[in-house]
Each structure stands twice: as C-alpha cells, then as structure tokens.
Amino acid sequence: MSESAETPALPKVRIATTSLAGCFGCHMSFLDIDERILDLMKIAEFDRSPITDIKHCSPCDIALIEGGVCNAENAHVLREMRANAKILVAIGACAINGGLPAMRNRLDVGDILNEVYRDLDGVQSHVPNDPELPLLFDKVYPVNEVVRVDYFIPGCPPSADAIWKYLNDLILGRMPRLDHSLLHYD
C-alpha cells in the first residue's frame, strides 16, 4: 500500500467490519495480514468493528460483512452497515451463500428450537422468550438476499493475502480481482 501512503492529502479510508452468523474466522484471517496492518493504518481507520469495539456504525467507506443473516439482530446490523457504507463487501462463504449455518435450512426452525430447549430433560421446558434475544429467521440467508452487496470475497476463510489484495484494489480504485492462486471457496 506504499503508493497511497505517499499521498497524505487523501483522507483516511474508514472501514467497518462485523461478523453476523459467522465464526469470526474471516476476521481472524484478516488479522493474518500481520504487520501489513501497520501499512493499512496509515491510510485507513476503523469504524464499528470487533477491533475497535465501537457498537454502532457511522458513515464509512468500506464495510466488510462476515457471516450470513440468521436472526433479527443480524438484519438490523446489516442494514445499519449498508446505510452507512459506500461499498459493502460480503466476505467469506457464510456471507455469500449462508455457508455452514445454512445447512440448517432444510429443517424447520420451530423443530430446531424445540429440539434444543423444550425437550431438555428436567432442566428447562420452554423456548426462551426474553425480548432481549433476537429471533431466528426461518432460514439463514446470504447477505445479498437482504441488502445490496457491491463485492464478494469468497473463501472459508479467504486467505489474508486474498483479503489484502482485494482491499488494496478497492482502496486504490481498481476493479478488484483475485487470480487463481487467491480464489478459493474452501
């Protein structure tokens, strides 16, 4: 990212990230860019993200969304991110097609809740109804079925190199592309 680091006139690129119905694996992979994060911080700053612990998103340039949309809270967070981000990027298998969590999609969500809570021996006999808890959707949805998505970085997770390359392209205004060595779905 040295080319842009030498043009201090540009304001810092503001990046928000979140993990919805994901495993934070994509975030871990992002952190695997290791010391390159220092280069990134010269030209970028973080908005809402597990890295900053900021709870709500403010206007930003790029939002990275990990995970699919499995409950109401996911949808609220996603909409907030979409409303605030100029560019929204779905990152990882779960954000792109529901991934592992979506393997529940062939099951009835009521059956799942009953199986998990109601049928427990003695301990608990009802499905939790606390309004604080977000309700599950009938299915786990890919991000692009809930909001408009501008870019997708596949992978489970995408490698740090793939994320790095993609972010570089986005920040520098190039059409982002991953060549064969960086493009993986697994």
Binding site: A90, I96, N97, A102, K139, P142, E145, I153, H180, Y185
Partner: peptide, 20 residues
C-alpha cells in the same frame, strides 16, 4: 468449482433455492 474459479465467480449471485 474449478469452472467457477476459471470464470472468476465471486458469488452464486441468484437467490438460493436451498432444496431438500
């Protein structure tokens, strides 16, 4: 999958059918 890589498919794009 290999053909998807070859055609630079970044997303399945369409609404998933999720068949049983």
């Amino acid at each position: 999958q290999a053909l998807a890589y070859d055609s630079e498919m970044m997303t399945p794009h369409f609404v998933e059918f999720y068949p049983h």
